[in-house]
Design a protein around this nucleic acid. Structure first.
Length: 647
RNA sequence: GCCCAUAUAGCUCAGUCGGUAGAGCGCAUCCUUGGUAAGGAUGAGGUCAGCAGUUCAAUUCUGCUUAUGGGCUCCA
């Protein structure tokens, strides 16, 4: 049997395995770093005999832990090492599953008592022992019946359950020392590769992710090819923690929570509210420019309305209700019903369409207590919501305009984002024809703007297909912000119509859409994205004037007023403190422009300009400074072809 | 909602093997008028999350509640 390794041909003798071939083909150093073999797009154990390789693919490639596939394998094997260590230390424990994940791996255990971080040191020490012994991972294939009997004898009922669900006549087992696990593989040749690892946290996790099932103890951990890479990763985790919006929100005095009186609801402090107000103001203007009309519906509406809209049946658990003179009212969890009533309050001609109603609407949703998370997940939030009511023919153009807005807004803040189309789920309403036409419009609009189309098959809402927009935050987490949903139910439920050219009444198409999603969440993402160094145009305080001594107080106050009149959010720090102290404080507050006035500047009626990154722009007159700051504010808008038109 | 951990001054955290508590920052007052990341002194500030229980005595031990953190589930 002939095989090609790195361009050279090798003749494999029967009974030889991948390791034998690599040993012959690679340098000693490279062979030592090889953990698996890639052949025809599949990864194999090094111990795989050549006969078991796909015959049609003669090319054999060594896999090392430095590449994605090898790292994945390293972590998966590390999970086995961890399980073996836990089994040794806690003989009664039952093992379940332990996959590699994006930045590490985990293993779910069922133990009489949950593990705590205090157990980590002992587990890590045991793992190090296993690693030091460089124990081989031995693959064995057995019949399904044999495997069931094997795990039943050990009381490993979770493994038995997995095998029974697998529906395979033969399953593979991997043996590591005395620990045998059901596993598809592949694995490292031996445990000696698992040397740079760290247990990170414990968590509860439902067996098979179903909340009806038993809660298991999950241990999260990570592993890297070497100590340096592990250290680097742990360092990055620390850095990411520094950007946590909850921490920065407190440090920059943007917002706070008062958990005792309103868990999951934000108290916006002056600086946070300033930032939010600028954002809201900008959003309103931008929507007006793009043909939206601003509307607003009431905050609480009678229960009958929620029954009509379907929210009472489908969303009641997440709604807040209140009794008013014996009548149950629901606090709105969404803004759509208000907009439906506004549209329905007059008869519309086809000439009026599309009608685009935008509302920065405050909604309340009762999220489960465990789901709350800073600004990312709250119970009261403002959406940049809008509803577009149009004819079927107008749908594609309307979607295109919305996607353009998504692109422009995320571009303005420099966010990476992804858009995906969700198609008809199994449980849904509406005709096939409606679904096909609407889905087609979504896809065509994406194609027209040149965005790659990702399809999430069957992930749409029951009432229509949608496009979701996700942005990536500083921790690499994805957050859903935008949603563009076609809705086939609400126009029916509220009997929305328009009079067509033919004089007949027709059913319009309706689109729900939000771009930033929740302003709370978006601001949280923005805080982490820029680590609190907000773009100048949205910074709550854009400039602070610092005096060196009291002699400059009068001019500093005058200069602050002049900047304010030019539309700059400036303030003066006239306190009797050392300059270095004031500079430090302004810097810690991440104020973009720090303006120093001493006697030298006083004489020329100018300011010495320091940026928050420590750079110094030198001495500038107020006129020069205003020009620089204007340009700074306008810069992000130019990218999206937008204008910085407010002050 | 579920699992684990946590809750001490406005903030960040010490501490008490059960005898009602401390630091730094911040705040107030005074001194200092100093040129680009912390000048000095003095002072105020805490029902040690809440409610029960054990105890002569609980901030400390136990239980419950609430909230927060890490996850799971959920986010039509």
């Amino acid at each position: 049997m002939k095989l090609i390794i790195e361009g050279a041909e090798y003749e494999a003798a029967p009974g030889q395995c991948c390791a034998d071939l690599f040993k012959a083909a690679l340098s000693g150093k490279r062979f030592k770093n090889t953990v698996a073999a890639a052949c025809g797009g599949t990864i194999f154990d090094l111990s795989t005999p050549v006969e078991a390789l796909p015959p049609a693919c003669p090319e054999l490639r060594p896999v090392t832990p430095d590449e994605a596939a090898g790292l994945d394998l390293l972590r998966h094997s590390a999970a086995h090492v961890m399980a073996a260590a836990v089994k040794t230390l806690f003989p009664g424990v039952k093992v379940t599953i332990g996959p590699s994940i994006e930045n590490g791996f985990y293993y779910d255990f069922d133990n009489s008592r949950p593990f705590t971080p205090e157990d980590f040191a002992a587990i890590e020490a045991e793992m190090r022992k296993i690693s030091g012994q460089a124990m081989p991972f031995v693959r064995r294939e057995v019949s399904r019946e044999e495997a069931v009997a094997f795990f039943e004898a050990q009381g490993e009922n979770y493994k038995v359950e997995i095998i029974k669900d697998l529906n395979e006549p033969v399953v593979s087992l991997y043996e590591l020392g005395g620990f045998t696990d059901l596993c598809r593989g592949p694995h490292l040749p031996h445990s000696g590769f698992v040397k740079a690892f760290k247990l990170l946290s414990v968590a509860g996790a439902y067996w098979r992710g179903d909340e009806k099932n038993r809660m298991l103890t999950r241990i999260y951990a990570t592993a890297f090819p070497d100590e340096a890479a592990l250290k680097d990763y742990l360092h990055r985790l620390e850095e990411a923690k520094k950007r946590d919006h909850r921490k920065l929100g407190k440090e920059l005095d943007l917002f706070a929570f008062h958990e005792d009186v309103a868990p999951g609801m934000v108290f916006w402090h002056p600086k946070g509210m300033m930032l939010r107000t600028i954002l809201e103001d900008f959003l309103k203007r931008e929507h007006l420019k793009r043909g939206y009309q601003l509307v607003q519906g009431p905050q609480i509406l009678r229960r009958e309305l929620w029954m009509k809209s379907g929210h009472y049946d489908n969303y009641r658990e997440n709604m807040y209700f209140t009794d008013i003179e014996g009548d149950v009212h629901g606090v709105k969890p969404m803004n759509c019903v208000g907009h439906m009533l506004i549209y329905g309050s007059s008869l519309h001609s086809y000439r009026d369409l599309p009608v685009r109603m935008a509302e920065l609407g405050v909604v309340h949703r009762h999220e489960m207590s465990g789901a709350l998370h800073g600004l990312f997940r709250v119970r009261q939030f403002m959406q940049d919501d809008a509803h577009i009511i149009c004819t079927p023919e107008q749908l594609e153009d309307e979607i295109l305009a919305v996607i353009t807005l998504v692109r422009d807004l995320f571009g303005l803040f420099g966010f990476e984002y992804r858009l995906s189309v969700s198609t008809r789920p199994a449980k849904s309403i509406g005709s096939d024809e409606d679904w096909a036409r609407a889905t087609d419009a979504l896809i065509k609009a994406l194609e027209r703007i040149g965005v790659p189309v990702v399809i999430n098959e069957g992930d749409g809402a029951f009432y229509g297909p949608k496009i979701d927009g996700r942005v990536t935050d500083s921790l690499g987490r994805e957050w859903q912000c935008s949603t563009i949903q076609v809705d086939f139910t609400l126009p029916d439920r509220f009997d929305l119509v328009y009079v067509g050219q033919d004089g007949e009444r027709h059913r319009p198409v309706m689109v729900h859409r939000a771009i930033l999603g929740s302003l709370e969440r978006f601001i949280g993402i923005l805080i982490e994205h820029c680590a609190g160094n907000f773009p100048t145009w949205i910074s709550p305080v854009q400039a602070r004037l610092l005096t060196v001594t009291d002699d400059q107080a009068e001019f500093a106050a005058e200069a602050a007023r002049a900047l304010q009149e030019a539309g700059i959010r400036a303030e003066a720090d006239l306190r009797n403190e050392k300059l270095s102290y004031k500079v430090r404080q302004a810097q810690v507050e991440k104020i973009p422009y720090i303006l120093v006035i001493g006697n030298q500047e006083l004489e020329t009626r100018s300011v010495n300009v320091r940026l928050r990154n420590g750079d110094n722009l030198g001495v500038k007159t107020l006129e020069e400074l205003i020009a620089v700051m204007r340009a700074d504010c306008e810069e992000p808008f130019k990218r999206g072809g937008m204008h910085y038109s407010f002050s």
